[in-house]
Design a protein around this nucleic acid. Structure first.
Lengths: 326, 326
DNA sequence: TTGAAAGCGCTAACAA
DNA sequence: TTGTTAGCGCTTTCAA
């Protein structure tokens, strides 16, 4: 780090004390107009900008918030980042961002480093692999988005979720109404223990008196690379006339296989929208995620936690909406 | 910010001085094994983690690097972020990220705040609207990627570019070889002054003795919303049998129009790849950008600037590669 | 309206 | 091997 001009330098140049310079910068009313102007003149002239780190150890706030997401290449999270960034900029907050790639170790590490920074608060998409956030976070304000922290500690933290059960229900229900009779599902094994999207799928079948067939409920690996062969399996071996893809990664594989096998009449249901779907000429029912609301609400809750001492824990569930592509 | 346990607290508990605790943490060899173990025991027990801000004002390094990009929703930048994040994590660096949406004011603001933080270095995709980076950066290490800082100061800074001229040349040349006879281009007006992608286009026409027709060289607005009507214009009014889209946003509009007008035999050339292209059944020649190399090289250059005092300014140009979709 | 001085949490030179 | 001390760049009480 290059030696930079400090408040003391400015004080010397202006022939005043550090305190006075500090006052001139921080809208402190207890200072004469003339000295304030003089000092601000010098500050500009010498291109001086105070060191935020030094400031923060006194003021106990860094104006930085940390964000932990699985990855940058998911449009859903990209949108959320965008929303948060815009709101943060308005309030002079900076964003520190880290990705987990669904690895608990990376999440742990990222949160630790951010806490130590320290950041004023965190917005976290949990990997679901950390079981003591309470100790880890050490009272740092936090909002969990898209997934709960973990079952045990869920009640402790602000959380914003998507209504996955209803969202999935709506998609699959719609597919059935559109005539699909044998709908397979490919879900990510990451959520094998408790996939709400699977539950929604099951509910929709039940409601329509369609029997569950375990042979067409498939799980792909975390990274989704095997989703292609699973899609093939559903299309060819299992003769499905509909497939529900529980995330955009899986969706891509499914669409690819439909194309390869030229089965344009198969219905596809999906979580996550994607701008390219409109170019595809395929029959897709996409569940649009409320990314705007999620990012925006997350930031607001975090601000409230940071600035309002009597903030109550909130659990918010956001609705999705259907979009049809043909 | 909640009152957190400090080095002094640990010192008191352990019955030693702050210095000793500091030594125990920082692998300082001048300390006995027993006290080190004792102290580390206590540190763990009390879940103490040192405050990085406080540390950094002494050590003059924050272990944070700043990244400035146009937006999160561009897959090219998302990929670059991913690469940088991975390398940064390995070296214990944190990432502070801001987006500009191509607005000079936002870039200025973000860089200022990051410099003040301070960050140890910056990786910047310039909006092209700042004309005194030298003064702004104040000797902070920086690597410009994807675009130069500005003409005047270009020689001062490490820069990593994509070979846009050759890349575009290759795409358009290929389109001609594939039989296109009237190729229109839609470029972003953001780069109207000097678009290397346009230059590559022109070169390819020249080489193949195709005359330039200004009527089919069009510029869309910054956000690309009018690209759709421009695409229509090229397809219908100008009867183009090929369109070169200079970025992925424009590409989307072009593909959309081709679909709307059912002109599947029109050739499309594009900068930027997109995973969804393979699903499209359209004739697209995509220029794949070297995002991996760019992110990786950017981080390495930055590290060198930070740690190697005799670092020389470097200008790197990366090659693209063609990919065909039918 | 100003300055002196203490202190935020940490590191590092120096002394012991 | 350890502690004392000074100091990083800033804010904030307190006294003038």
């Amino acid at each position: 780090m290059v030696r930079r001009i400090t408040i003391q330098d400015i004080a010397n140049i202006a022939g005043v004390s550090k305190s006075t310079v500090s006052r001139a910068m921080n809208d402190n009313p207890v200072i004469s107009k003339t000295t304030r102007n003089q000092i601000q003149q010098i500050i500009k002239e010498y291109n001086y900008h105070p060191n935020s780190s030094a400031k923060s150890i006194k003021t106990k706030q860094t104006m930085v918030i940390g964000i932990i997401i699985p990855s940058f290449d998911n449009p859903f999270f990209a949108k959320i980042l965008d929303v948060i960034q815009n709101k943060a900029t308005n309030k002079q907050y900076q964003l520190m961002i880290a990705t987990t790639h669904e690895k608990g170790e990376l999440e742990l590490n990222a949160i630790r480093q951010m806490i130590n920074q320290p950041v004023d608060g965190l917005i976290v998409v949990s990997t679901g692999k950390i079981n003591d956030y309470h100790q880890l976070l050490n009272n740092t304000p936090v909002v969990f988005i898209d997934r709960i922290a973990n079952q045990r500690e869920n009640h402790e933290f602000d959380t914003i979720l998507v209504d996955n059960i209803n969202g999935s229900f709506n998609v699959v229900n719609q597919m059935i109404e559109n005539g699909a009779e044998r709908i397979g599902i490919i879900a990510n094994s990451l959520f094998k223990k408790k996939s709400n999207r699977l539950i929604g799928y099951q509910k929709a079948l039940q409601k329509n008196n369609v029997e569950l067939d375990p042979d067409i409920i498939l799980y792909c690996s975390r990274n989704g690379r095997d989703a292609i062969s699973l899609a093939s399996q559903l299309l060819i071996n299992q003769a499905c006339d509909g497939i529900f893809a529980t995330d955009s990664n899986i969706l891509k594989s499914v669409l690819k296989q439909i194309e390869v096998h030229q089965m344009d009449n198969v219905q596809v249901g999906a979580f996550d929208d994607n701008p390219y779907l409109s170019l595809l000429n395929l029959n897709v029912i996409a569940n649009q995620q409320p990314s705007n609301a999620m990012g925006s609400k997350a930031f607001e809750l975090l601000m409230d936690q940071i600035h309002n001492p009597q903030h109550d824990v909130q659990h918010i569930k956001l609705k999705t909406s259907l979009k049809h592509y043909h």
